[in-house]
Design a protein around this nucleic acid. Structure first.
Lengths: 190, 190
DNA sequence: CGCCGAGTTGAACTGAATCAAGAAACGTGG
DNA sequence: CCACGTTTCTTGATTCAGTTCAACTCGGCG
C-alpha cells in the first residue's frame, strides 16, 4: 500500500498504532481528478474523507451568487465537505481540483467499518472537527485584525512554491479582496 | 435539580435519554460572576464547559494588543475555551461576564466521569466541536461577503433585546469595525 | 465638584470596490 | 502550426466604506 505520506500524517495527529493503520489503510481508495474538475458540488452529499497526495484543491461556498474561497488543500492536507459527510446532508460548500489531482479517500460506509474495527475512528473524527475549528477561527481573526496585504504575505509564507500555480483570482477570493486589488498589492511588494 | 433549560438544550442537540441526563446533571455546578468579571483569562487553562443561564458573556482574543470579540453567549448558549479545555493547555481566548451572570458548568474531571458512566459524553464532545466550527465558518463567510452594516443588522435580528445591554464598543469589536463607525451606522438606520 | 469612560460628531485620509479598457496567456479547431 | 476567441491579469480613474485624529457631550462615581 502506497499511502505512506498519509500514515505519517495520521501518526502525527493521532499517534496511530500499526494495527490501527492497517485497518484504516485497507479501506483507502485512490481517486484522480483533472484540472477544474469538481471533487464535491454544492447541494450534493459528501461521501468521502480525502487527503491530497498530489495537486491543489480549493474549497469554496456561494453567497449572493459570489464564490468565497474558504481554504486551499495542498499535498498532505485534508479536503472534505465535513459537515455534509457527517450529517449525510447536502453540502453548502464545493471542492474543486485546481490542477490535476490525486487524493486518497475513505468512504462513509468504510469509515463506519473503521469505527467498529478499531478505536482510531473516533479519535480521527474528533480531531478533524477540532482542526477545522482552529483553522476557521484563525482565519476569522486574521480578517478582523490584519490587512489584506498581511493575509497575502502569510499565505505566501506558508506555501512559497505551491501558490504559484493558483490563479490570482482564487487567491484574491481567499484573501477577501478583488483580483484588481491583489494585482496592485503584488506590484507594490516586488 | 434546576437546570431544566439545559436539559432541553441537550435534548435538542443530542437526543439525550433521561438516564444519561441524570448522569450528566449530577455533575453540574452553578457558578456566578459579577459584571466585568473574567470567567476565563488568556494564558490560563479552561477547566469547565459552561452554559449561560442568566446574563451575557463575551469571548475574545488579543492580537497586536487589540481585543477581538469572537462571540457573545446569551442565556442557553455555550461558553468555553474549548481547545484549552480539551488539550489542557493555556487558553488563547478570554471570556468575560458583561452583566451579572449565572452559568451551569461541568469540570474537566467530572466530564471524564460522564464519558465513562454514559455514552453521551462522546456525543456531546463531538457536537460541541462541530457547533464551534459551524459558527466560526458562518462568521468568516459574513466577513468575506457582507458589509459591516449587514453584520450589525443580523446581530440585532438574532438578539433584538439582549443586545441592548451590551456596550457599543464590544458590538463594534464583534462586527469588526471601530466604535465610531458603528455609531454612524446606528444613526443612519434610525 | 471634578474626573473618567462611553458615545457622538466632524474632517481628512486611506484601502479597497467598481467601472472600464487594454495586454498577455491559453486552448481549441482549422 | 497558426489564428482565433476566451479567460486571466494589469492598469487607470472614480467612488465609497471605514479609519484615524480630535473635540465635545453625557452620565456615573469617587
Amino acid at each position: 500500500m502506497a499511502a505512506e505520506f498519509l500514515k505519517n500524517y495520521y501518526q502525527k495527529i493521532a499517534k496511530i498504532s500499526d494495527r490501527d493503520w492497517d485497518v484504516l489503510s485497507s479501506h483507502l481508495i485512490v481517486r484522480e481528478f483533472s484540472r477544474n474538475e469538481k471533487i464535491l458540488e454544492i447541494g450534493k452529499t459528501e461521501n468521502y474523507i480525502s487527503f491530497v497526495q498530489e495537486g491543489v484543491c480549493r474549497t469554496f461556498c456561494k453567497k449572493d451568487s459570489e464564490e468565497h474561497t474558504l481554504s486551499f488543500s495542498f499535498p498532505g492536507d485534508f479536503a472534505c465537505g465535513y459537515l455534509s459527510f457527517l450529517k449525510r446532508s447536502p453540502s453548502f460548500l464545493s471542492i474543486q481540483a485546481l490542477t490535476p489531482t490525486i487524493v486518497w479517500s475513505i468512504s462513509y460506509e468504510d469509515m463506519a467499518c473503521v469505527y467498529q474495527e478499531s478505536g482510531v475512528g473516533n479519535y480521527i473524527g474528533r480531531n478533524i472537527a477540532e482542526g477545522l475549528y482552529i483553522r476557521s477561527t484563525e482565519r476569522l481573526i486574521s480578517f478582523m485584525a490584519d490587512s489584506a496585504e498581511k493575509r497575502y504575505a502569510e499565505l505566501l509564507n506558508g506555501n512559497p512554491i505551491l501558490i504559484q500555480n493558483i490563479p490570482l483570482k482564487y487567491i484574491a477570493s481567499y484573501i477577501g479582496i478583488t483580483p484588481q486589488a491583489l494585482s496592485r498589492i503584488r506590484r507594490a511588494i516586488f
